[in-house]
Simulated scan of single mutants.
Amino acid sequence: MRIERRKAARVVLLDPDDRILLMHGFEPDDPQNTWWFTPGGGLEGDETREAAALRELVEETGITDVELGPLLWRRMCSFPFDGRRWEQDEWYFLARTKQTATDTSGQTGLERRSVVGLRWWTSDELSVARETVYPTRLAELLRTLLDEGPPSAPLVLDPEIA
Results as ranks from 00 to 15, higher is better:
F81W: 13
I161L: 08
I3D: 08
T38Y: 00
M1C: 07
T97F: 06
D65R: 13
E148I: 00
G106T: 08
G42S: 14
A52S: 15
W120E: 10
L145E: 10
L68Y: 06
E59V: 02
P159F: 01
M76L: 13
C77E: 12
D103V: 11
W35I: 00
L94G: 06
F79W: 15
F26C: 09
C77P: 00
A95L: 04
W91R: 14
V12C: 15
I20C: 15
W36T: 01
E111I: 00
T34G: 01
L71K: 10
I161V: 14
P151E: 09
A153D: 06
L145G: 07
D103F: 06
A52T: 11
E90G: 03
I63V: 14
L71F: 01
T136A: 13
L13I: 03
D89P: 02
Q88I: 04
L142H: 06
E50W: 04
P159Y: 01
L146K: 12
G62H: 11
W35G: 01
L22K: 06
G62M: 11
F26G: 00
P16I: 01
G117V: 02
E87M: 07
D65L: 09
L110W: 09
G117I: 09
Q88K: 12
G40E: 01
R19T: 00
P154Y: 07
L22D: 01
L22R: 09
W73G: 04
R74M: 12
M23L: 15
D158Q: 12
T136S: 10
R112H: 15
I63G: 06
V11H: 04
D65T: 10
W36S: 00
M76K: 13
D65E: 14
F37I: 03
R84F: 07
T102A: 10
W91K: 11
R85F: 05
D147E: 15
T100V: 15
D17C: 09
D46A: 14
K98R: 15
D17P: 00
